[in-house]
Nucleic acid binder design. Structure first.
Lengths: 141, 141
DNA sequence: CTTGAACCTCTAGTCACTATAGAGAATACG
DNA sequence: CGTATTCTCTATAGTGACTAGAGGTTCAAG
C-alpha cells in the first residue's frame, strides 16, 4: 500500500531528485519515513504529483501551481482564481507562438539564402551582422 | 570617436552589465581603458555587439554565437558551419511551435469549459488532476 | 548474512543574465 | 574651483526549475 520514492518516480515519470525538490519547496508535503529515514508514499501522493506534472507540462510556473494546488485543497472556493491563472497562461502561450512564427520566418529566410559558399558572402552571417532589425525580445528560448 | 560603456549600451540597447558579462565570457574583446580604468569603445564594438544581440534575439545560445563570431572573423572559411547552426536553430523553433500549438489547444479547452462556479466542479482543476495525459515535455517555457 | 541497488543529505552547477553594494571617476553647473 | 550628480568600477549573490555529484546509509532479495 505504501512505496518508495523510486516507485513513485516510476509511476509518475517524475525523477527522484525532482520529487525531493518539490518537497523542499513545499509543493509536496513531507511524507512519513521508515525507521531508516526513507520516504514512504501512498496513492494520494501519486495524484498530487501527477497534478503538478501535468501543470508543469502546460507551462505553469511553480507559484501558479502552488495557487492551483491550494484551490484543489479547498474545493468550496470560487474557481475564478483558477480561471484567471489559466487565462494568463493561455495569453502567454499565444504571444509566444506569435513571436516564434516571426522567428521561424527570419531563420528560414537566412537558411534559404545561404548558398553554402565562403563565409564572406554567407547570408547567415550577413543577416546577423545587419543592424537594421528592430524586433524586441523574439526568443528567450 | 570613442565612448563609454553607457553610450554603447544606449546605442545598441544592450544593458551595461550585460556588456560587461559578454566581455567576461569572451564574446567581446576587452576594450582599451581610460586612466581611471573606464572602458572606451569604438564603432567596431557597436557592430560586434549588434551582431550578438541579433543572434540572441533569434535564440542562438552563447556557444553558437561564439562559433558564428569566429566565422565572421575568418571570412575565408566555408559557411557550412554557419548553415548547420542556423538550420539546427530553425529545427528547434519549429519543434517548439508544434508543442506550443498543442499547449494552446489544451489551455483553450480548459478555459472554455470553466463555468466559473465552485472549484469542486471547475474544469481547470479537473483537467490538471486528470492523469490520463500522455504528452511528453510540452512546455519548458 | 551478504550483496548491491536504491536511498539519504548536502552542496554546487546549469543558462544568460540581473541586482546589489560600496567605492572611485567623470562631467555639468555655479 | 567646488560640489552635486551621474556614471563607472569590481565582486558577489540571486533568478527558475531543476540536475549532478560526493559520500554515506538502508533495504530487500538470495
Amino acid at each position: 500500500m505504501d512505496f518508495s520514492i523510486g516507485e513513485l518516480a516510476r509511476r509518475t515519470k517524475v525523477k527522484v531528485p525532482t520529487i525531493r525538490y518539490y518537497e523542499q519547496i513545499g509543493l509536496l508535503l513531507p511524507p512519513p519515513r521508515t525507521e531508516g529515514q526513507q520516504r514512504r508514499y501512498d496513492k494520494n501522493a501519486i495524484a498530487r504529483l501527477a497534478f503538478i506534472k501535468h501543470a508543469r507540462e502546460l507551462g505553469f510556473d511553480i507559484e501558479a501551481i502552488r495557487a492551483l494546488l491550494s484551490l484543489q485543497d479547498n474545493p468550496d472556493q470560487s474557481c475564478s482564481v483558477a480561471d484567471r491563472i489559466a487565462k494568463a497562461r493561455l495569453a502567454e502561450v499565444e504571444e509566444r507562438i506569435v513571436s516564434l512564427n516571426a522567428l521561424r520566418a527570419e531563420l528560414r529566410r537566412m537558411v534559404e539564402e545561404c548558398a553554402s559558399g565562403r563565409v564572406a558572402e554567407c547570408r547567415v552571417i550577413e543577416t546577423l551582422a545587419d543592424s537594421s532589425h528592430g524586433h524586441g525580445r523574439l526568443a528567450e528560448t
